[in-house]
Amino acid sequence: MSSAAAIYPVEGVLLVSIRDDITDTDIVDLQDALSERIADESANGVVLDISGLEIVDTFVGRVLAQLTSIARLLDAETFVVGMRPAVAMTLVELGMYLPENRTALSLTHALAKMRQMRDE
């Protein structure tokens, strides 16, 4: 995987930061690498930070949805954080509602929501 995405472990959660110049190949590689890391590190959550993404098109949207489904099968909850308002409006126009993805406004919010879920 190139430097277009980085995975950092934080409090049992894998934080994934995605850069704007990520290619289709990079994002498919990220899907593979992240699935392995969730299993290897028994992560209980994944936070996908897309604040760097100026656009999310149908391909990237589909991979985000798949990542969430894969993580769920591996018993990890996924949050998407940092989506720009223009990106959200465009995704809805594209008919991509990402119903499986939980979203949070920021990393701090996502970590707090995950802690809450774990305590319940």
Partner: peptide, 26 residues
Amino acid sequence: ADRMDALGARALRKTRFVTAVSEVAR
């Protein structure tokens, strides 16, 4: 995106058009 920024495009209009560009380029 850079050209639209230089022309002073609004954020939503740029995001919509650049997303469309990404689809047809792919």
